[in-house]
Design a protein around this nucleic acid. Structure first.
Lengths: 328, 328
DNA sequence: CGGGATCATGCAAGCGCTTGGAATGTCGTC
DNA sequence: GACGACATTCCAAGCGCTTGCATGATCCCG
């Protein structure tokens, strides 16, 4: 307990409680198998010497590290925050800790983080990231639980929980069509998923007789601040769009601010649609029409998948929901 | 390498390379001590059998886990994101992984996360959190590196890296004074730090002859969406404020949107000042006057502090900078 | 050419915990 | 009172790696 001597171990507790260390270990991991009286003595001993289990040793011995790695591109203005927050909450409650990895849009960075996770023998890797072929290969061969979230790959490595980004794009196109918009302008963010939404949108838009929409793109994370440039660029277009399809709600918010600053009314002069249903979307003036993803649900499904036998569903489609509000 | 057989170990590598496992271990941890030829053989062997070190075992044996715990209240709209991002970037480059803990405003949750970190024998805990007296005690007695960031406690447990929130409050008061504002309204977020800024502001404001400002508070995280309610409440005040002092840039942004929606010009009819210099602050219309904190610097100092001998500075004041822009 | 330095490697004792199987104790039953 | 069925507890062999110390090998210089 003192700075001087070393941390108390299981054995110390065992000695104090007059039992073997095996019993203390069992008390810690499955309290119900030790006799009540013994349990009390052990509990007392633990408190008395201030024992803190060593999960490194525990993990080594049991080969379950009680740690999962969560890989996302960024923290700021990120659409994944809700997922991560729910996930973190539930995992911590279950005694599992979260290793955070920020991948950016780089497959190399992702690879490095995955190797780190593997080195720590995590119980699962939950990833939104881009994979190099080598890593994908490695993952397929390894037996680690690998959960891809926020997307639905054709051939998931292990388990996938998400929704179809193409469908999102299509639904947005249909929605805008029924609302009577004619000239959409797309502002995509970097990344595979955003590209799929874009493709879905363009395909559907053209299929229903629209002309090829104008486009722009912004770096990730797709944030408020990109709007100024993107809006300026848009104004240089020959024909002014009547609706802009944004890669995120933050970006949509930025476009609204810029439009209003330029004296345009939203949605009358320029409509805007976002993606993600960030909390601000419902609070903006005007409120932002967007697509809601149930991030908390993704988190729950991911956690449930961690110790699921291989037999379970390998693909979980959580769907999405277009929320029509004021901005489009 | 196959799903069937178990993961290769150091010994497997050693056997293949024709050396002892000790040598392989040395190759991995301090490559320069092994002979060049041996190193090459080992490298080849590692690649050949696809060896992935087991850091649980390594950590147990060396009692350095190469893992640090980072504790913040929230992810969304969080002022700490920049710090976390920089930190994560640098740590990962150094082979250290980040355990993320979301504390909320609860000291109990923080306590639980700290225990979890201790169980994993982290090399350091970097925290923005609130501590219970028991945990503070435990931490003082334990020898774990404990780095408090974004604040400067009078008597830090181990190391503190931050700035004076009172001073921030004071500076804001002085600034608004020189700009000629008369009736500030404060919207604080929950938490000790926000309260200190508020106190600093009020003290200075009154010291310079102002009357007690009106006040409101919002829950954490202090986000855009709180603005609608807070603004509505503010309009019910007997005397309409001429400037609102916000707990965060996101909140400030929200107030600006609400004010403009209500037909007020910012800053002519109502000025707004934020805190944190989020990226949106410089991009909003109008751009937001705020206080800049160098989050990346905090991250760097924190990392530097991880293996600093006890003799170093126990308190690092990184200061802050009021950035006058258009909104106030 | 000898002797101490220096370099590279091996030996083996842990690090603190888990867990299968054995051992002991306790009941209820006939 | 013996016996099988449980309920508890213990023994001891790891889990995969690190590291102090010892051992050879190599080298430099007088």
């Amino acid at each position: 307990m003192d700075k001087a001597d070393k941390a108390p171990t299981l054995d110390d507790v065992a000695t104090l409680a007059g039992v073997s260390s095996a019993t203390v270990s069992r008390y810690l991991n499955s309290p119900d198998v030790v006799a009540k009286a013994t349990a009390e003595r052990i509990a007392k001993a633990i408190k008395e010497i201030g024992y803190i289990p060593n999960l490194l040793a525990g993990g080594l011995a049991s080969s379950r590290s009680r740690q999962v790695s969560v890989l996302i591109p960024h923290l700021s203005d990120s659409i994944f925050n809700e997922t991560i927050e729910s996930m973190s909450e539930e995992l911590v409650a279950g005694g599992i800790t979260v290793m955070l990895g920020l991948t950016g849009v780089s497959a190399e960075r992702t690879a490095k983080l995955i190797m780190a996770a593997l080195s720590r023998r995590v119980d699962a890797i939950i990833s939104t990231g881009l994979l190099t072929p080598e890593i994908e290969d490695l993952l397929r061969r390894s037996k680690v639980r690998f959960i891809q979230i926020w997307e639905l790959p054709e051939n998931p490595i292990d388990i996938a929980i998400g929704f179809s980004h193409r469908e999102v794009g299509r639904d947005i196109a249909r929605f805008l069509r029924t609302r009577g918009y004619r000239l959409p302008h797309i502002i995509t963010a970097e990344g595979k998923r955003a590209a799929q939404r874009r493709d879905g949108f363009v395909a559907e838009w053209q299929a229903s007789g629209g002309e090829v929409p104008t486009e722009d793109s912004v770096t990730i994370p797709s944030r408020f601040g990109h709007a100024r440039r993107a809006f300026a660029e848009m104004r240089r277009l020959e024909r002014m769009p009547d609706v802009v399809v944004c890669g995120s709600d933050h970006l949509a918010q930025g476009i609204i601010v810029e439009a209003q600053f330029a004296g345009l009314r939203v949605p009358e002069d320029l409509a805007v649609i976002g993606f993600g249903n960030a909390s601000l979307a419902g609070e903006m003036r005007p409120t932002i029409t967007t697509v809601d993803i149930d991030g908390a649900r993704i988190a729950r499904e991911a956690i449930a998948a961690i110790d699921r036998a291989d037999s379970g569903n390998r693909i979980v489609d959580v769907g999405f929901r277009l929320i029509a509000r004021e901005s489009a």
